[in-house]
Design a binder for these strands. Structure first.
Length: 354
DNA sequence: CATCCGTGGCC
DNA sequence: TGGCCAAGGAT
């Protein structure tokens, strides 16, 4: 390996510029012999799937405080884990997080496997995450390929083929750069570079440690790469949410099905947007709160009408049940509907009517 | 290989 | 404002 190799320049850059992250063993501590906790690496990598560092930080601290090791997490109640994940999105990750913790705790004695194949056999761990845990937590020379690595490779080698077709070529190029020494630091270095220097828009080529060999920059097309096949436009769906508050302060809520949109999460009874069309959950004096909720999912826009009502004790809903609400347990769409309803419920406070 | 699955920030 | 983007996986 020549001293001017991509990996050596990236590691030298990383040793100085590594971001300080709650789940990371920085380069100084790493060279002093400290190693990352596989549990923490796994937790962070699951949270970081399609999600930014800024969004993950708070959740990572909360989860590792509540459940410091994989045995503790494996013993947690499903509703507690789903509630803590609320707001982070892609809720299948939370369901698989629990499944995985229970497998590792029950069948692996609490020790995560170190091989890529062993890791990838676990729920919620795919090719990227398996390579990341193997490299970062176990110092194995696995090649990590995420969106950052794809972008860095596409630019450095001026790959013009659009994604996702270019995926294999980019993976091969990344594999050829992966060093035998410090592969975990290297993996984090490429991803840090992609997140801070080789960014999707306005890359900071002037301070990039790879600029002198970057073909994309030499050809003046770095910022245009990687090319991507155009995406389909998002359709707009419409639906209705029903928010009922009982006189004692309990709310009519339902547990959503374990699969599909917001699967496994807490929600208001709704209709018309997620494949269900059951109508109102109970007969009542439903009032439009006057504020339409808008929300965008991965593949469609949603405009949600919010209907609200106050009902007496003894009300008997056809679906869902009345219970105490912790608003933080709601996924963002349901939280928006709750917020939109507050004007209605503020003016219908029993003690303001008398 | 295509589709489904959240959310917040950015320009 | 709306489309794009982020440390992807499951089916």
């Amino acid at each position: 390996m020549c001293e001017d190799a991509v990996s050596q320049r990236l590691l030298a850059w990383y040793d100085i510029n590594a971001r300080k992250l709650a789940w990371r063993v920085g380069p100084d501590a790493w060279r002093a012999g400290q190693r990352a906790d596989p549990y923490a690496v796994w937790m962070s990598e699951i949270m970081l799937q399609q999600t930014t560092v800024a969004a993950v930080d708070k959740y990572f601290r909360r989860f590792t405080t509540l459940w410091p090791d994989v045995h503790a997490l494996a013993s947690a109640k499903d509703a507690d884990v789903m509630g803590e994940w609320a707001g982070l999105g892609y809720y299948a990750r939370a369901r698989n997080l629990l499944k995985c913790a229970r497998v590792v705790s029950g069948e692996w004695g609490g020790v995560f496997p170190g091989t890529r194949a062993g890791l990838q056999a676990l729920p919620g761990i795919g090719p990227y995450t398996a390579a990341a845990i193997s490299a970062i937590a176990y110092d194995r020379p696995e090649t990590v390929v995420d969106g950052n690595v794809e972008r860095v490779m596409a630019r450095h080698f001026a790959v013009q083929t659009p994604l996702p077709k270019a995926k294999k070529d980019l993976t091969d190029l990344a594999g050829a750069e992966t060093p035998e020494h410090r592969p975990g630091c290297y993996a984090q270095a490429v991803m840090d570079l992609g997140a801070t220097i080789c960014t999707p828009r306005n890359p900071a080529c002037g301070i990039c440690p790879l600029s002198k060999t970057c073909l994309g920059r030499a050809r003046g097309i770095a910022a245009e790469l990687p090319r991507k096949t155009p995406k389909k436009p998002k359709p707009t769906r419409r639906g209705i949410a029903y928010l009922a508050r009982r006189d004692d302060g309990a709310w009519l809520l339902e547990d959503r099905p374990a699969r599909g949109l917001l699967g496994g999460m807490l929600g208001w009874p709704t209709e018309g947007w997620d494949g269900t069309d059951d109508g109102a959950p109970m007969p009542a004096n439903w009032q439009d709160v006057g504020v339409e909720v808008t929300h965008t999912f991965t593949h469609f826009h949603l405009r949600l009408q919010v209907l609200a009502t106050q009902v007496p004790q003894g009300a008997n809903p056809a679906r869902g049940n009345f219970r105490a609400l912790r608003p933080a347990d709601l996924p963002t769409l349901m939280r928006k509907a709750f917020d939109a309803s507050q004007r209605y419920f503020d003016q219908s406070e029993p003690d303001t009517l008398g």
